[in-house]
């Protein structure tokens, strides 16, 4: 027990230390790497707190995809390379006095929050009893999936809407942007990608399937498939072209559309929206999950790629 306690203390200290290091790193590349490692350690902490679903999502999306997005942007700012020479440098904070005051205020607020946290009652019963009671009618056996896709399905629908909004805004913002030197993988990694892609696709499908009874589910599966697409983009196996645009639009919206249609479609005959008939609950949830997985994977890849696919010749005339 004491070994575990020491491990927890060490891990928590490392998480906080990495968060501080992230902010203190002078070089932006080092900052992003520190942030990714921070995310990995945080996921490890969540695994210690018996939250494997969250840990998976954090590794895949929070640390993994956010990190990839940050690195891709840094490469853009530095004209295609990740080294610090040339392009924009990440300047250190300039105004010492203001920063000091702000830091002091933030520190005081954090201390107050810490005291309030310590003053909070320990182990107030949450909603686990309600969840346990309702599990038999949920259509799935994994509690987190039941909460995400049934009890609080409305939240999850809106979360997919947030993703849709993000990709719409990104396409809008980057419309007509000149072709950026997109990072590419070297030959060794190309070979690796050729091996890794099919494995990852299978892993994503497995995660989706297993989500009904064990940690995993649409978001983790979508993230893995999204990572596949990102790898495909990096290794130039996938070259977005204008012809892909309708397909991409369809993939972005299919999760939201099917989810919302099912939510409305089950209403009636004494049932409200989102109230799946118990007999069809499992089928409907799997259908929603599959569609949402497609949308998440396509959206995450598109967020990484940035602008809508544009033909190179069109590009020249646009400018």
């Amino acid at each position: 027990m004491t070994v575990l306690l020491a491990f927890d203390l060490l891990l928590a200290a490392s998480i906080v230390g990495l968060a501080a290091a992230t902010l203190l790193m002078r070089d932006a590349f080092a900052m992003i790497v520190a942030f990714i490692v921070f995310g990995m350690l945080m996921a490890l902490g969540w695994a210690r707190l018996v939250a494997p679903d969250v840990a998976l999502a954090e590794v895949a999306i929070g640390a993994g995809l956010s990190g990839a997005l940050l690195l891709r942007t840094l490469a853009h700012l530095r004209g295609g390379s990740l080294s610090a020479q040339g392009g924009a440098s990440v300047s250190a904070p300039a105004n010492g006095a203001t920063q000091g005051v702000n830091a002091l205020l933030a520190g005081l607020a954090t201390c107050a929050l810490g005291l309030a946290y310590l003053g909070a009652p320990q182990n107030v019963p949450g909603l686990e009893a309600h969840v346990a009671d309702a599990m038999p009618e949920s259509g799935v056996t994994h509690p987190v999936t039941a909460v995400l896709l049934n009890f609080r399905a409305y939240d999850t629908l809106m979360e997919v809407v947030v993703l849709l909004a993000a990709v719409i805004v990104v396409w809008q913002v980057e419309r007509g942007l000149a072709e950026t030197p997109a990072p590419a993988l070297g030959t060794v990694y190309q070979g690796f990608a050729r091996v890794a892609l099919p494995v990852a696709v299978i892993a994503g499908g497995y995660l989706l399937w297993i989500g009904a009874e064990a940690p995993g589910g649409a978001f983790q599966a979508g993230a893995v498939l999204g990572a596949v697409a990102v790898l495909g983009l990096l290794s130039r196996h996938v070259r977005p072209a204008p012809a892909h645009r309708p397909l991409a639009r369809g993939a972005f919206v299919v999760g939201t559309a099917v989810f919302a249609l099912v939510a409305l479609g089950v209403a009636g005959a004494g049932r409200v929206a989102f109230e799946y008939p118990p007999a069809q609950a499992k089928t409907l949830i799997l259908l929603i999950e599959a569609m949402v997985t497609i949308s998440i994977a396509a959206t995450l890849a598109a967020l990484f790629h940035g602008r809508a696919p544009v033909a190179v010749s069109r590009e020249e005339t646009d400018r």
Binding site: A57, L70, G126, T156, V162, A166, L303
Partner: peptide, 29 residues
């Protein structure tokens, strides 16, 4: 066993945050 509701909330939060990050990065680029 842990309470599954906060787990679901955090998964939602992670996806929301990556969406917001992507938008901010597009603006930065």
């Amino acid at each position: 066993a842990p309470d599954p509701v906060p787990h679901a909330l955090v998964i939602t939060g992670i996806v929301v945050m990556v969406s917001a990050t992507a938008v901010a990065l597009a603006l930065i680029r």
